[in-house]
Amino acid sequence: MSPYLISLRAIVGREALRFIHQRERFIAALVRPLVWLLVFAAGFRAALGLSIIPPYQTYIAYETYIVPGLCGMIMLFNGMQSSLSLVYDREMGSMKLLLTAPLPRWWLLFCKLAGATAISILQVYAFLAIAALYGIDMPPLGYITVLPALAVAGLMLGALGLLLSSFIKQLENFAGVMNFVIFPMFFLSSALYPLWKMAESSKLLHDICALNPFTHAVELIRFALYVQFNAAALGWTLLAAAVFVAAALWGYNPSRTGMSRRG
């Protein structure tokens, strides 16, 4: 087997092992969207009227509307969580072990990204299974067609996490990321309300939502869950992923100083 595949298997395996060791993290990652689905959505069902918009062909309950957004939420939190673990790895020194391996740095970072995305996808499927038990199910084929969409969305959000981790110098700064990245990305998107609804309130907010890559990731997932392809959403998500990856690689470039500054 090539050194590339051996290292990919080892890095993804290590991420998975680490995840299994942190059972609370898995439960927290599952409870968060379920609270939104079972409590928040139930409360908002009456307040929000939804018209028929693609990919839906009939009127849908609000719970059904927010499922793709909550899938995105799981991936968003996971992307940030992996960024946190990268900063932690750097503080603990294990990042040095990774970065001094005789493989291209972009490949090593891609392996990290792939590991984080794989874990995100497992969590999304666990969430979709519980949602289905609750009665919110998708077309059966949708559970398969959503897989590539989840992979693309996970890579994009993981790349954002990677980018942030290359610029966050200390773990203490991480709370800021929650406030300035996760919440604006989530609320300024189509995860909880369709964009036309936002446009009714504010044209500016609508435009911001439309630019938000998270909106496109959610729409990509939404269409894929209904076995439909949204080319624009895919294009924007891939573009955002490419930009984040390029910036993260620049951030991790060894000619940039700042990985550690002790003499």
């Binding site: 051996i6 298997r9 080892a10 890095i11 603990m92 020194g93 294990s94 990774l98 005789p102 493989l103």
Partner: peptide
């Protein structure tokens, strides 16, 4: 700085490293 993964066994730590070197 110590760079062992404390949740893994000694052998698992070495296997992970070996894989990073393509072994």
């Amino acid at each position: 700085q110590p760079t062992l993964d404390l949740d893994l066994s000694v052998r698992q730590n070495l296997s992970y490293f070996a894989a990073l070197h393509g072994l």
